[in-house]
Each structure stands twice: as structure tokens, then as C-alpha cells.
């Protein structure tokens, strides 16, 4: 009683429609992300009169006036370098503190564990404008004010909840039996962690590091209040950009987006790992 005849027409049609919907959805999502970025670069690379004119251009005219003004603006390169320093330091700090916390949460039972988990998220419950004033007072007193390290500490605090929770679920996904096997074969706790758990968890840890990087890169308010001479690019530009002429807004927007795009592109395979897509 096997039915080898092809499926009836309506079913085929439904499948075709489904496939069409799928690809249309994919195309829509891709355009959703790419079109604004495309226009950002088109306008950044066009002459100021073309930016404000109508109709808008589809292809850039490669007039570099806006970009040039922008690059000559005093302090842009310094601010870009500061941004990179702060973001990298934030990445290191949040992983150095977050990964052990995530490991402890997944492997050990200790009193106050649930409370601790809530506490970690609580750091995101207070808006930064509220925290910035007392933080700045304290930083000025301790000498951390206007330093890359001081700002990285604040950004690490913002990134920690994500680092802790992402690594927690990562370590929970690695069977404890693997570690136990390593112990029986002569490893101590640390060796077992480094030789067995870490290689398995590394892509995920990298993903949460990328997350920390992006959080730091995008943060404005703390950066604007806690640094003056050593501002990050975001703090340096965002305040000036929203009151600047349109062509410069585009040039600045492109400058803000570009480094983050390159960075994310470079580490994309780790990002996919975070969502459980195999590392191919």
C-alpha cells in the first residue's frame, strides 16, 4: 500500500507559496538592515548640496568634502583610538569577571544563588544619567576621572549581566561528566577547566565579549560625563552631530558605524555560535 504518485496539485502550490514567503521574508529582513546602511554611506560620500537636494541619489558621487571636513575635525582620530581602548578593556574586564561568575552559577550550589542572579541583572535597572553624577564625584576623588580605565569599569558593569548570563547558559550546556572524566584521568579542577571546558565554551565566550564591545562602543552618557579630554568617539560625536548640518551627520554616522561593522564582520562566526548555529 505505498503511494508513489506525486502529491496533488494544491499541496505543491502551497509548498511553492511557502517557499516564496520564506524568501520574501529573508529578502525583507536583509533589506531592512542593508538599505539604511547603504544610504548612510551614499550620503556620506556625496557633496553637501546633493545630500539636501531632491531626488536622493542611489549611487554615491564620491565627493569627499564632508568626510574630509570630518577627518580634519580636531580630536576625531584620538577619540576613535580612545573608543577602541575602552571597548577592548571593557571586553577583557567583563569576561574576566563574568565568565567565572557564570561558571560558578552553573556548577555550584551556594546559598543566595537565585538572589545573586537577580542582583547581577539589577545593575541594569538604574538609568545611567542617575548614576553618572555620584560616579563622577567618586571618580574625581579617586583619580579615575577622565581615564580610559575608569570609563571601561563603568562599561564593564553595564556589560556584566550579559556576560554572566550568556556564560552561565554556555557552561550549563557542557556536560559536567566531561569534567569528571578529566578528573579521573589526573587533571585537577583548573586543568580540567582549561583543557576540556574552555575549548568547548570559547566561541560562546567570544560572542559575549563581542556583546561587551558593542555595548561599550554605543554608550554615550557616562562617556560624556566621565571623560573630558579622553572622550570616546560616541561621546565626542553624538552630542555634536545631532545639532550639525545634515551632510556632516551622515559623515559622522558612517564613521561611527564603520568600525563596529568591521569588527562584527571579523568575529561573526563567534556571534553565530552564541545562537547555537554550528561553527562551520
Amino acid at each position: 500500500m505505498t503511494d508513489t504518485s506525486p502529491p496533488p496539485a494544491p499541496q505543491l502550490e502551497a509548498r511553492r507559496a511557502g517557499r516564496f514567503l520564506f524568501y520574501a521574508g529573508v529578502a525583507l529582513l536583509v533589506l531592512w538592515v542593508l538599505v539604511p546602511i547603504w544610504f548612510l554611506f551614499v550620503n556620506a560620500l556625496s557633496a553637501p548640496s546633493e545630500v539636501t537636494g531632491f531626488p536622493k541619489r542611489i549611487w554615491p558621487s564620491f565627493d569627499l568634502a564632508s568626510v574630509q571636513f570630518f577627518l580634519q575635525f580636531q580630536g576625531v582620530t584620538q577619540a576613535l583610538w580612545n573608543s577602541v581602548k575602552v571597548a577592548v578593556l571593557t571586553m577583557i574586564l567583563s569576561i574576566a569577571m563574568g565568565a567565572p561568575a557564570g561558571y560558578a552559577l552553573s556548577r555550584f550550589d551556594f546559598p543566595g544563588k537565585e538572589f545573586f542572579r537577580v542582583l547581577v541583572i539589577m545593575t541594569r535597572a538604574f538609568p545611567l544619567p542617575l548614576l553618572a553624577l555620584p560616579l563622577a564625584v567618586m571618580f574625581i576623588r579617586t583619580g579615575l576621572d577622565d581615564t580610559v580605565l575608569g570609563l571601561a569599569l563603568v562599561h564593564a558593569m553595564l556589560a556584566l549581566p550579559f556576560a554572566v548570563l550568556i556564560t552561565f547558559s554556555l557552561f550549563s550546556g557542557i556536560p559536567v561528566e566531561l569534567e569528571e572524566a578529566a578528573w579521573t584521568l589526573g587533571c585537577n579542577r583548573l586543568q580540567a577547566f582549561i583543557k576540556v571546558v574552555l575549548p568547548l565554551a570559547l566561541p560562546g565566550i567570544m560572542a559575549s565579549a563581542v556583546f561587551a564591545f558593542v555595548i561599550s562602543w554605543n554608550e554615550v552618557f557616562a562617556a560624556a560625563v566621565l571623560t573630558i579630554e579622553n572622550r570616546t568617539l560616541t561621546a565626542f560625536l553624538l552630542q555634536s552631530l545631532n545639532v550639525s548640518p545634515l551632510p556632516l551627520k551622515f559623515a559622522g554616522g558612517a564613521a561611527l558605524v564603520m568600525p563596529a561593522l568591521i569588527f562584527i564582520f571579523a568575529v561573526r562566526k563567534y556571534l553565530f555560535a552564541m545562537w547555537g548555529i554550528a561553527n562551520r
Binding site: A132, A136, V137, I140, R141, D145, A224, V225
Partner: peptide, 21 residues
Amino acid sequence: PADPGPWLTRIQAELGAGSGS
């Protein structure tokens, strides 16, 4: 230059700390 929000917060912080740049 700074936006009015950070502008005020920053100077208030320096006044609160009793020293500043």
C-alpha cells in the same frame, strides 16, 4: 562643548567632589 545634560552633570560632579579640571 557638551550637551546641556552632561554639561550640568559634569560641573555638578566637580563641585561635589571639591576639585576639578
